[in-house]
């Protein structure tokens, strides 16, 4: 079978896949955000079903458990009229038998239009994308990237603040293992925001400053003058005396509570990719503050952003008239 033609370069997003935010231009990001913005109202309509992706097939392939990201992609696809199938596969079972490449080839033979893939290993989604003929969206690979999360964060900020340029954003928590942090660092820098990371050195990756951030070990100093505070989820299994000594010590020094938040700008927004560990990285009082916390809004933007990504990555095939499996 012949590969489909490459997407046309004049569509605003000249990429076949969405594997990360590293390397995307400001124009490409803005293109996706503008389209996503137009889909926010679709989600709020009583009659929200659209038909742009009618006849298209989206397969969600999750090698790592996830509820919200998978549901968000499912809804995004369905609201655009696509047929969406979700598969959860235990990576531990795959590792011993069928290889990742076999799985990719099998699904490829069913001619999906988009594969949405989450995988616990960094680089696995890229490996898979090299073996299939359809568009691939990275829904999170190991500690590498989670581009739709960064896009939905950017959309949330943009709608609240009008833009990202010139804002100071602090990302706090387990930067070392976080794909959300990496995707956000690249995207925010590209759109002209200043990025800080705040964590104990055990949770900061080597030479993180080279990614274009300022790093802080002291939460109050790091939060000083910030417009946006992004908290990251801390895996509790990393807390028992390995990367940090205990949950209570972590919360004492790195958990976001009202007291530490006073260091940030008075109108600073609080974000979290979820699911939250209340009392570990974030205090409930702060998380539920309706004036400051935009955590639920992030979830809503997630669907809009994923609609924009699904549409963009299928649009070009349509234009070229080469949609296989239709």
């Amino acid at each position: 079978m012949s590969a489909r033609p490459e997407p046309l370069p004049n569509t605003g997003f000249p990429h076949r896949h969405l594997l990360g935010t590293e390397g995307l231009s400001a124009g490409e990001i803005t293109f996706l955000l503008d389209l996503a913005d137009s889909y926010v109202d679709v989600g709020r309509d009583a009659e929200m079903k659209r038909t742009r992706l009618r006849g298209r097939t989206v397969i969600n392939l999750f090698f790592e458990s996830s509820t919200r990201t998978r549901t968000s992609f499912e809804l995004a696809g369905k609201r655009l009229g696509a047929d969406v199938i979700s598969m959860s596969v235990a990576w531990s079972a795959i590792k011993k038998g069928e290889t990742l490449i076999d799985t990719a080839m099998t699904l490829n033979a069913m001619h999906p239009d988009v594969l949405v893939v989450r995988h616990p290993e960094s680089g696995a989604v890229k490996l898979l994308s090299e073996k299939v003929n359809c568009a691939v969206i990275n829904a999170g690979d190991g500690s590498h990237e989670h581009p739709t999360q960064a896009l939905l964060d950017a959309l949330t900020i943009r709608r609240r603040r009008g833009g990202l340029a010139g804002l100071t954003v602090a990302i706090c928590g387990d930067i070392l293992h976080s794909r959300v942090a990496r995707s956000n660092i690249y995207l925010l820098n590209t759109l002209g925001a200043r990025v800080r990371v705040i964590a104990p050195p055990t949770l900061l990756p080597a030479e993180v400053e080279r990614l274009g951030v300022e790093s802080f070990f002291d939460m109050r100093r790091g939060l000083e003058g910030c417009d946006i505070v992004m908290m990251l989820r801390l895996q509790t299994e990393r807390m028992q005396g390995s990367f940090v000594p205990s949950i209570r010590e972590y919360f004492r020094f790195f958990g976001l509570d009202r007291d530490k938040l006073t260091a940030a700008k008075p109108d600073a927004l609080i974000m979290h990719p979820g699911p939250m560990n209340r009392g570990v990285e974030i205090d409930s009082e702060v998380a539920d503050d309706i004036d400051r916390s935009v955590i639920r809004e992030q979830v809503e933007m997630g669907v809009a952003v994923r609609m924009a990504c699904l549409e963009t990555l299928t649009r070009d095939w349509h234009a070229a008239g080469a949609g296989a499996g239709a």
Binding site: S122, G123, S143, H144, P205, E207
Partner: peptide
Amino acid sequence: EGELATRLGLPGIP
């Protein structure tokens, strides 16, 4: 261990 490992999200060996 270094910038590239950090970008790739891979654990480094110092």
